[in-house]
Amino acid sequence: MIPLLEAKHISKYFGVLKALDGVSISVQENTFHGLIGPNGSGKSTLLKVIAGDHYPDEGNLTFNGNDVTNHTPELRAQNGLNLKFQITAIFPELSVYDNILLSLQSSESFWNLVLSNSRASLHDRIMDTLERFKLVDRAGSLASELSHGLQQWLEIAMAVIRKPKLLLLDEPTGGMSPEERRATGELLLPIKKDCTLIIVEHDLEWIKDICDNLTVLDQGKVLDDGTVKHIESSQKVKEVYTSRV
């Protein structure tokens, strides 16, 4: 089976620092794939390379059968690859409703945008998503007025509503309470049938519950990868986590 995303021998340098050192991962369609590892292991860098925020110095990236190594972020997004940033990246001076609308209308033609032709047809989808992410009561509020947890949900909602083929979530539960983390997991699970997910997360228990496969990174290299069960029993992973986390 051809994987949806395949990264081969990806290396990324920041000056003399080698953030990624020949990393290869393969992600199958409609699976949830977790990236874990200690701080500085290269998880977020790998996610940014996949999203197009950074370009790899070596290696190549295939998405949906196409080589996207040198594609710009907007081209990758247009082809169904979406990123939720580690630090919440919403539009603070727009209402919650308009944040979602902005995310959803990106494929509309120039004239549709100028004449506001598509808002009516997108309205129901926006309202449904707002309800699903428990944001409907705050639809008219500015995004900056939301709590941190709701801002994270808003950004996830902005990504999910676009029905991406591949969604990249960089620490989606960062700064959330245990209750919010649990609720975030419940929000994500139903999208599995339509979407593939790569998640970077520190909370091992949470990521084990929702992911099918895990890749463990350490010092810019793949330490181990496989099913959750395999990773749980991996001696190499245990050593890294007991010594540094």
């Binding site: 539009f91 001076e93 609308l101």
Partner: peptide
């Protein structure tokens, strides 16, 4: 318009 929304973004 929705175009203006893109500009605001």
């Amino acid at each position: 318009s929705q175009f203006g929304l893109v500009l605001a973004g």
